[in-house]
Amino acid sequence: MKLNDNVSAVVVGGASGMGEATVRTLRSRGVKVAILDLNEERGASVAAETGASYFRADITNEESVLGAFEQARARNGQERILVATPGGGGLSYTAWRDGESGAIRRHDFQRFGRIVTLNLNGTFLCASIAAQGMMTLPIGTDGDKGVILMTSSVASQDGPAATIAYVAAKAGINGMTLSMARDLAPEAIRVNTLLPGNFETPLLSSVPANYKSGMRDWNLHPKRFGHPDEYATLALQIIENGYLNAALLRLDGGARV
């Protein structure tokens, strides 16, 4: 897909981290960008800095997301690009023994559901709304009506301990990729998923320091956390490369957890 000021994009989670970097990179190519995010202060700030538009969206709430897409389309027109970067989790085992009391505990079921809803359900909701809108468009000169890029994680394949809910949710996104690409292929909509490794994002700040200190060693090279603009650079290459479809692409410095 050729990127210019005739193209509109929606970036879910575009107020920070990899989403923000993607907003900035798309804007550098002239693309009209709508940021959908729950963080109003940060979203408005990024929009003001980049010339994007910000619309508040709670991706766990269908009415909120539908309203945000409607506002974005009223401002920029129907999007041809969706980049969905929402995510969040936390550390908890399936079940474990308390180190002090010896009591056997299990993962809080409500918390498990919230993590799956945020990562998996929220991503599907945004993708399905975007796909429905893209289907109204004519096929572009590049052969696409639109491109959907979802965000999973290398954790979905490597299965680190104490991340069971996050792993389940992100593995669900992997599983959706080929099925969604098959669903939307007759409409000339491509679907791909990026699997980032450990990136310098607000999500990483929630990881305990003693756990985070060893995470860099998971990488082969370079032994550092990824930069959000490295995600954004690859995201644009995926959008522009019209032959790339139904793919899962790791971006992780060769990390294996």
Rank of each mutant, 00 (worst) to 15 (best):
H221A: 13
M215Y: 00
H221I: 11
N245P: 03
L195N: 06
W218A: 07
G242Y: 09
N219T: 13
R224G: 02
I238V: 15
L204P: 05
R216K: 14
N245Y: 01
R216E: 05
D229H: 14
K212M: 02
L204N: 01
I238A: 10
G197Q: 10
F225S: 12
A235V: 10
R224D: 04
L204D: 00
L203K: 05
E200F: 14
N241C: 09
G242T: 15
Y211L: 11
L234W: 08
N198Y: 02
N192H: 14
L236M: 11
E230V: 09
K223P: 00
P208Y: 04
S205T: 06
N219K: 09
T193W: 07
Q237E: 11
Y243V: 11
M215V: 01
N219A: 13
Q237C: 12
D217V: 13
E240F: 05
I238Q: 07
G197M: 11
R224A: 05
F225N: 11
E240Y: 07
P208E: 04
Y243R: 02
E230C: 09
L236Q: 04
D229M: 14
P196V: 14
G197R: 10
S213Y: 02
L203C: 01
G197T: 12
Y211I: 15
L236N: 08
N198Q: 05
G242D: 04
N245S: 01
N245C: 07
Y231P: 07
E230K: 10
L234T: 13
T201H: 12
E200K: 15
E200I: 15
K223M: 07
P196S: 08
E200C: 13
N210R: 12
L195E: 04
F225E: 07
T233H: 13
S205W: 03
G214A: 02
N219S: 12
F199T: 08
R216V: 14
L195P: 01
L194S: 03
Y211C: 02
G214E: 01
P228W: 04
L234G: 08
L203R: 06
A232Q: 06
S213W: 01
A235S: 09
S206G: 02
H227D: 07
I238T: 12
T201D: 11
I239N: 06
G214W: 01
Y211A: 08
I239H: 08
N198L: 02
A232P: 02
P202C: 08
N210W: 12
S213D: 10
I238C: 11
N210A: 11
T193I: 10
G197P: 13
G214V: 00
E240K: 05
A232H: 01
T201G: 11
E200L: 15
Y211S: 01
D217P: 10
N219G: 09
P202V: 11
P222G: 00
F199Q: 06
W218D: 05
A232D: 03
G214R: 00
E240W: 09
S205N: 06
E200S: 15
E240C: 06
T233A: 15
Y211W: 13
R216C: 03
P196I: 15
V207W: 01
E230F: 08
G214I: 02
I238P: 06
A232I: 09
N245T: 12
L234Q: 09
L203T: 03
E240I: 12
H227S: 00
L234H: 05
S205K: 10
V207N: 02
L195S: 01
T233G: 15
G226L: 14
P208M: 08
Q237N: 11
D217E: 14
F225P: 09
F199G: 05
R216G: 09
N192I: 14
N245R: 04
